[in-house]
Design a protein around this nucleic acid. Structure first.
Lengths: 242, 242
DNA sequence: TTATAATTGTGTAAAATTTACACATTGCAT
DNA sequence: ATGCAATGTGTAAATTTTACACAATTATAA
């Protein structure tokens, strides 16, 4: 809580007043997903609050008055991981009254997808760790709830939009791609049908290169053709089903 | 802007400080959809700001420090329309820095679906009007952008979840239902296939009643069976396509 | 060098779903 | 009673999804 020329009491009164007028703390929290060892991981930090010692929390910060929501999320991402130009999308806002023990803080949750390889090169911080998403039991604040929401969002989103490639190297094998989908969706997929599906979309480009250092026949490496995806005429939707 | 015991200057300083610390104005804005005369409508109010004279705006308000986001949206909805127990869901937050001329205000957009008939009975306010969604050109603040986002959200959502019934009377004909989908999606649908689809979902219950006051053969009236929908086992998803 | 193990790469037939399409029926209005 | 305007219904073709097996390639071990 801030203190300026005015006395603490005054501040408190004003703060109360401001809160009544709609002034509350606003933060962003980033759910940063990575894919490593065929598992979906999420980047967490040890909570800095006493209330939540030994608990892990998402990477977040209060929003500055001169930055947009997206801007704040990018900033957090860059400050904490050194990464830029990563996939980032707003998912949902959370505003339970006592979700933060120190004050009323409303948070806007973002989902981010990063290539774990890139990350490793940039920054080292031993308070930051990748966690297997499926092993996380409890977290600080309402962060488990936020994580769950973002994970569900991702599961749905990845089937309708080409996000997944942000989690892979530029050049990847179809096996890697399938492992990614299987890890995120938590299902096993038929290899032949999976390949057929992606080839029929005609958005994968054959690089002519092959996997290296694998103890078996190497697979072809592909890259995703974003230009082609952009130009592709969006299918007119109609698929009522629930 | 509020004023208490402290001088205006102090307030301003403190406010600035607070903003730097993440204290901003937060509001909710409700995009209230209705369905009438086979058209999708949205409920708007004349803007109360001089900057936006003659412009229409969404129904919204600052969030009180002791209410949740959902709570604030429900409150706005009730205060402005007298309606309770309506469909309401959070869609997205908007935080461009100068989106509000008076101050930095971040807003959480909600989508609400109401039965226009119910509404008419409750409240009369001639600053409030239903507008055909497709005729709205410009609005106050960034509200057109918010409306567009909510409309797109609705188009997608209505195909995957049974929201649409909130826009209809409890008992409705299949023609009404189809008109609703056609109006929202902006497409024409095959009548036989539409019926087949809904019957195959087995969630419509025949009431045994028929339309009245129609200048032609009356259609059967159905109601949506929410219990059955809840119990229905969610289909395992897998439909990669983009 | 040869055999083995592991994984890539490929096609087809059956099933399920989606699409296109036409006519008899019903009730109201004249 | 007749005409009008919409409801209600089925089937065949096309498309999409699913299930499933074997030959080719490379690294490794014998």
């Amino acid at each position: 809580m801030p203190a300026t020329a005015a006395s603490q009491k005054n501040i408190k009164t004003i703060l109360k007043q401001l809160e009544n007028e709609g002034y509350n703390g606003i933060s962003v929290d980033c759910v940063i997903f990575g894919f490593d060892e065929d598992e979906l991981k999420v980047l967490l930090i040890k909570s800095d609050l006493k209330n939540f010692e030994d608990r892990w929390s998402l990477l977040g910060d209060l929003i500055d008055s001169n930055e947009t929501l997206d801007g704040a999320a990018y900033r957090v991402l860059k400050e904490r991981t050194g990464l830029e130009d990563v996939y980032l999308e707003q998912v949902k806002s959370f505003g339970e009254i006592s979700r933060h023990p120190a004050a009323r803080v409303i948070t806007v949750a973002y989902c981010s997808l990063v290539n774990v390889q890139h990350y490793q090169l940039k920054k080292l911080d031993n308070e930051l760790h990748w966690h297997n998403v499926r092993h996380i039991k409890e977290m600080a604040f309402d962060h488990k709830q936020i994580l769950d929401a973002c994970y569900l969002w991702l599961q749905k989103r990845i089937q309708e939009h080409p996000l997944g490639f942000s989690l892979l190297p530029k050049k990847f094998s179809l096996r890697e791609l399938q492992n990614l989908y299987e890890a995120i969706l938590g299902v096993r997929l038929d290899r032949r049908n999976f390949r057929k599906k992606f080839f029929s979309m005609a958005l994968l480009e054959d690089t002519g290169e092959y996997e290296a250092d694998v103890p078996h026949r190497p697979g072809k490496l592909y890259k995703f053709n974003y230009e082609k995806y952009q130009q592709k005429e969006r299918k007119k939707w109609f698929g009522i089903d629930f």
